[in-house]
């Protein structure tokens, strides 16, 4: 059920590991599957497991352990805001509150038009840039004051 392009990318990941250790590519393969499909359905996880020759439950364990995998559908854009202590001291919590007000949703909720899902996240390793947030697990946005947040929201269409 994954596209040939995704499988090709997964092959490149498999090549990083010894020939008898294909399972090592599972984290990357699940990330690729999620990138393609927006979230990880049980079918997608099983497909990855089958491709890597591992038990579906073993791939499912990985998908449920790491918190950047989404096991339920999310909005077109997933916005993860760090509220951990160093970020909190310089506005991370306030940025989360500001986003909730602007979007009219709470953490782990999606706007009614399906555009944005808001998540509270743990340390992203960018505390000096606080407030920080990540769009769709890929793009980190630094120094997000109200003005910058407004700009970002206007851009996410």
């Amino acid at each position: 059920m994954l596209t040939p392009e995704s499988l090709k990318r997964i092959d490149r990941e498999i090549a990083k590991y010894p020939a008898d250790q294909k399972q090592s590519a599972v984290m990357a393969a699940l990330a690729i599957a999620q990138e393609e499909q927006g979230w990880l359905s049980s079918e997608a996880i099983e497909c990855v497991a089958g491709y890597l020759g591992m038990a579906p439950i073993a791939a499912y364990e990985v998908a449920t352990f790491y918190n950047m995998y989404d096991l339920k559908p999310v909005g077109k854009y997933k916005l993860s805001v760090c509220t951990n202590l160093p970020c909190m001291l310089t506005g991370g919590v306030d940025a989360g509150e500001y986003l909730k007000r602007k979007l009219g949703i709470g953490f782990n909720e999606t706007t009614p038009d399906g555009l944005i899902t808001l998540k509270e996240s743990e340390c992203m390793g960018a505390c000096g840039d606080a407030p920080v947030m990540i769009v769709n697990n890929r793009r980190m946005c630094s120094w997000m004051n109200p003005e910058q947040i407004d700009k970002l929201l206007a851009e996410l269409k």
Binding site: K16, Y17, S24, M27, A31, F65, Y66, Y69, E122, C123
Partner: peptide, 10 residues
């Protein structure tokens, strides 16, 4: 040498 990425687990 190869790079392996995490996916959100302290």
């Amino acid at each position: 040498l190869f790079a392996h990425h995490g996916y959100g687990a302290y």
